[in-house]
Every structure is written in structure tokens, then in C-alpha cells.
């Protein structure tokens, strides 16, 4: 379980998070919605301690992230996989080397044949086995995200963080990514945290939906409850996305 308790974060004079409280249950998919520029990425980065809060506590499986020392933190981070918005693939490495990177670096697997087999298996899972020898620059946006996902799951993490997984993708590729997220969930029973402003995608995959507005979580619940929310910001957000009862109406 991930607990975010009273998180505050400012950059200079800009207050981004103003007391975020959120509990993310184990083995479920939690989607954090919110318009662009509301601090969703900052919030996600706090969970893996890429950013330190000014105030507040982040607890993952009962462990307070802020109290971990450098090497303990690195060890703890092996529980996480993260898919970045632009995939963040190493552009000097091939797809195969990118996916193999965490395995090789952590000496999880020393035998090159086994490494290659594991990489192929993960790439097959995301439907990109044929791109194994390509460079990241030769891939489309959707393909890059799928390779990023293969890399994120290669160490078989317990928690996967997704930063805008469907942003900038066409509806078919976005649906394919959603299906991948669902299949990760079913296959590995991971805890998934997705930040997005794609409402349709959120309702397709989420077990829990939260809304970040003005630096706070203003609504959180199961997708059906979320859609019935009376909160004006939630209503406006859903209305702008033309979502009524989980269906898109235009």
C-alpha cells in the first residue's frame, strides 16, 4: 500500500502540492486525473523519491521513503518500475539493450542467453519482439512507450508508475497501451499508479480514480462513484471530456 500524507511541495514561489492525502491500495490500478500543469507528474515523482517533499510523508508498504538512506533507497527502488511520458529510453542503446539494462546492471541474470530470453519474453508481452534490434530513434511514440513498459517490468516490480501513458497517442495505440496495463495487472498482480488527463482511458482501466486540483486531491473513489461526484471541478472535468456514465458523448 502507498500512503501519501499531507504532501506539500513548492518550486520557488509556485506552490504545486498543498497537502495531498491519498491511499493507493495494493494490487489495484489507481488513476490520478487532473488538468495539465496541476502537479500530477510532481506527485508521481514523489512516490519514487525523484523529488523530495517540503513537508509530508510517503509510506510504501509501511516504509517511510523520506527516512531511507542512499543505498537503502536504491535497494527499495527495485520494487518499482516506471514508465516515463516520453519513455526515456537510452538513445545510445538498442531496444534489446534498453530492456536488458536493469537485468545486467543488477546482476539479476549473468548468463547472456538467459538475459536475451528474458528480454524477448518481455518484448513479446508488449508485442514488439520484431523491434528487438532497432534503435529508439527508429520507433514511433507508441512503440517507444511499449519498449519503456517492457523495461519497467523486466525486474518484475511490485509497483508500476505510469506518467501519462496514453498522452499523444492515437486512439487505437492508446487502447493497446490500456490493454497492456490491464494485462500487467492480471499477469503480475502489480500495484499500478497512473497519472493522466485522458478520462476515457482512466475509466477503461481504473479500480480507483482520484482528482488532483489546486495541489490537493479533491475526489477519490471507484470509477462509478467518481462519475457521480458532486464536486464542481470533477463535474466540469468530466463535462469537458464529454463523459456521462463512463461513456463518451459528443
Amino acid at each position: 500500500m502507498i500512503e501519501l500524507i499531507d504532501l506539500h511541495k513548492s518550486f520557488g514561489t509556485q506552490r504545486v502540492l498543498r497537502g495531498v492525502n491519498l491511499t493507493i491500495p495494493d494490487g489495484k490500478i489507481t488513476v490520478i486525473l487532473g488538468p495539465s500543469g496541476t502537479g500530477k507528474t510532481v506527485l508521481l515523482r514523489h512516490i519514487i523519491r525523484l523529488v523530495l517533499p517540503d513537508r509530508g510523508t510517503i509510506r510504501v508498504d509501511g516504509v517511510e521513503m523520506g527516512k531511507l538512506k542512499s543505498q537503502e533507497l536504491n535497494e527499495f527502488r527495485k520494487r518499482f518500475g516506471m514508465l516515463f511520458q516520453q519513455a526515456a529510453l537510452f538513445d545510445s542503446l538498442t531496444v534489446e539493450e534498453n530492456v536488458a539494462f536493469p537485468l545486467v546492471e543488477h546482476f539479476k541474470e549473468r548468463d547472456p542467453v538467459r538475459v536475451a530470453a528474458t528480454v524477448r519474453k518481455k518484448l513479446e508481452l508488449v508485442g514488439l519482439a520484431e523491434a528487438i534490434h532497432k534503435m529508439p530513434s527508429e520507433l514511433s511514440g507508441g512503440m517507444r512507450k511499449r519498449v519503456g513498459l517492457a523495461r519497467a517490468i523486466v525486474l518484475e516490480p511490485k509497483i508500476i508508475l505510469y506518467d501519462e501513458p496514453t498522452t499523444g497517442l492515437d486512439p487505437i495505440t492508446a487502447a493497446a497501451i490500456d490493454n497492456l496495463i490491464l494485462s500487467m495487472q492480471k499477469t503480475f498482480s502489480v500495484t499500478s499508479v497512473i497519472i493522466s488527463h485522458d478520462v476515457v482511458s482512466a475509466f477503461r482501466v481504473a479500480d480507483q480514480v482520484a482528482m488532483l486540483h489546486d495541489g490537493c486531491i479533491v475526489e477519490c473513489g471507484a470509477p462509478k462513484d467518481f462519475q457521480r461526484s458532486d464536486h464542481p471541478v470533477v463535474r466540469e472535468f468530466l463535462k469537458a471530456a464529454h463523459v456521462v456514465n463512463g461513456e463518451v458523448h459528443r
Binding site: 515523482r45 519514487i48 525523484l50 542512499s70 536504491n74 535497494e75 527499495f76 527502488r77 527495485k78 518499482f80 518500475g81 516506471m82 516515463f84 511520458q85 516520453q86 526515456a88 529510453l89 537510452f90 538513445d91 539494462f101 536493469p102 546492471e105 543488477h106 525486474l155 508508475l161
Partner: peptide, 14 residues
Amino acid sequence: VTEQIDALTTMAID
């Protein structure tokens, strides 16, 4: 700027 350094950090590599 392409988040590759952050990606290293999330992979528990300093």
C-alpha cells in the same frame, strides 16, 4: 532533459 537520468534513478542505479 529527456528524463534518461531520472530513468536510471528509478532503476536503482545511481
